[in-house]
Design a protein around this nucleic acid. Structure first.
Length: 481
RNA sequence: GCCGCUAUCGUCUAACGGUUAGGACACGGGGUUCUCAAUCCUGUAAUAGGAGUUCGAUUCUCCUUAGCGGUACCA
């Protein structure tokens, strides 16, 4: 049974990179009928916050990456928060200590920092020499009795090499001599990441560790801890990093990277999932648009590739547009209403009383929408009366100064006689305008700018019909003769 | 500095050692159209450099270069 996990530390929002890691874990689990587990790595007490955790959970849910085990999924949530599992880590640390696979190190952070600096100045690699590991039992006991603070380190053999067997990268070899003894417990007894991750992955029965490439260099250390603990080593898969425009790891300084910001901007979760899946992975065909179900059935770690991928908002936006076009009228309406409300284009009363009208105006813009938030600017003129022509519209207006009066006169006459039914309107308008010797391009453009105040938008007859007779007449009056 | 990873169009990527190096986004041209969009057709554009193995290398090996990641009592 495949068991994978996503293990964020609640020190900030869920960003694009974390979301992609979660997604790959999720897809792999679901593809293999396995379990996707969520664990909160909150051992950094300084930086962890409840707000971050809440946002991360909300982001995952929004993306549709619901977890099988984790917070909110069992009677006892404490299993999934590392700060609530401290006795577990301490038990394993005690065992290592008693087996002499770990030792107490009394060197202070200050001492070590000084040595590190010195080594750096001499352009030497710094490595802890393991001197406290040479202390006799009595010496160590004495120091402890003297009240000296200590960390716990796991001994690392200095000969031979450690091989990380990685599904995406193959064999990665590291000389053990480049590793130093690994700190697993701080002076305040809080366990360190490299230790808790191993203990938890084993205790939770994790079979595949899928995470970002930035963890690759930690892996040899973790393998040493697995071995010291006598634990089986899981399969590793280190996925390529997502990069910003400058090719460095995507981070806050590259602008908005929070998943929830994408939600606010009007991106669909299925579009973000679709795009993220294509970053570092590719299907065995040339398709680009996928639903979650399709991704699950196609996903394979073997097709994850090795190099980092730049995040391209343009492609995300394109994919978002495709998913928007695939929405039904009702779904799209539901999705757009919050944006219309937020921008003040419509009110809660409108939602109650003019639902069909709102739906109609949204559907008119469906094929044009790339992100949901654009709906407000695109359809504002359906909801207000006091708007003027924009610059482009004025140009069209001026350009047709010769015919515009006549156009409006005929248009006004037609709608007052036959109404604004779009089929009838189109038919009569063409006939009458031709009789008056006015070309379609001219009258269409003139009527369009008068009605909407802009040069682009849905079909002219759709606009007129949606406006209704009264509003059309008001617009004619505003610009008419 | 040291350790590790990576290298195909501008970007995301495909290609049992044999292809006119394919697709997608973006960009350009054209068809359709009342505009924009959508849609259809179409164009520009890539194997970082150098050795080697091989009949044949984008693909395997080595070197160089470049980029990235790690180098914490962060995760």
């Amino acid at each position: 049974m495949v068991r994978v996990r996503f293990a964020p530390s609640p020190t900030g929002y869920l960003h694009i990179g974390g979301a992609r890691t979660a997604l790959f874990n999720y897809l792999f689990a679901k593809h293999n009928d396995g379990k996707f587990i969520l664990r909160i790595e909150d051992t950094d007490k300084e930086r962890s916050t409840k707000e971050s955790e809440t946002e991360i959970l909300e982001s995952l849910k929004w993306l549709g990456l619901d977890w099988d085990e984790g917070p909110g999924k069992s009677a006892d949530d404490s299993l999934y928060y590392q700060t609530r599992r401290l006795p577990v880590y301490h038990r394993h640390a005690e065992k290592l200590l008693s087996e002499n696979k770990a030792y107490k190190c009394f060197c202070t952070k200050e001492e070590l920092d000084a040595e590190r600096k010195k080594a750096e100045a001499q352009k030497r690699a710094f490595k802890y020499d393991g001197r406290c590991g040479l202390l006799t039992k009595e010496q160590a006991a004495q120091k402890e009795a003297d009240g000296m603070p200590y960390v716990v380190r796991v001994r690392v053999a200095q000969t031979g090499e450690t091989i990380v067997n990685d599904i995406v990268r193959g064999e990665v070899k590291v000389q053990n001599s480049t590793l130093d003894d690994i700190i697993i417990l701080r002076t305040d007894k809080m366990p360190i990441y490299n230790f808790v991750v191993v203990v938890d992955d084993v205790e939770m029965g994790i079979t595949h560790v899928i995470r970002g490439e930035d963890h690759l260099s930690n892996t040899p250390k973790q393998i040493h801890i697995y071995k010291a603990l006598g634990f089986p080593i899981p399969q590793f898969a280190h996925i390529p990093l997502i990069l910003g425009a400058d090719k460095s790891k995507l981070s806050k300084r590259h602008g908005e990277t929070a998943v929830l910001r994408y939600k606010e901007s009007g991106y669909l979760p299925e579009a973000l999932v679709n795009y993220l899946a294509l970053l570092g992975w590719s299907p065995d065909n040339e398709d680009t648009i996928f639903s979650m179900e399709q991704l699950i059935s196609k996903f394979a770690l073997e097709r994850v590739h090795k190099s980092g991928a730049m995040f391209d908002n343009k492609k995300l936006t394109f994919i978002n547009g495709v998913h928007i076009r695939n929405k039904s009228a009702d779904e799209l309406t539901k999705l757009c209403i919050p944006y219309l409300l937020k921008s003040g284009v419509i009110t809660d009363d409108d939602v109650k009383n003019r639902h069909d009208f709102i739906k109609h105006t949204i559907v008119l813009q469906q094929e044009k929408l790339q992100v949901l938030s654009e709906i407000s600017d695109l359809s504002a003129y359906f909801y207000k009366d006091d708007y003027d022509m924009n610059e482009d519209a004025k140009k069209v207006w001026e350009k047709n100064a010769g015919e515009r009066g006549k156009v409006l006169e005929i248009f006004g006459k037609i709608i007052s006689e036959t109404g604004v039914d779009k089929a009838k309107l189109e038919e009569r308008l063409k006939v009458d305008m031709e009789a008056a010797g006015i070309k379609p391009k001219v009258f269409m453009h003139v009527i369009r700018v008068v009605l909407s105040g802009t040069t682009m938008g849905p079909g002219l007859f759709d606009i007129a019909e949606t406006f209704g007779l009264e509003k059309c007449m008001a617009r004619i009056k505003k610009y008419g003769c």
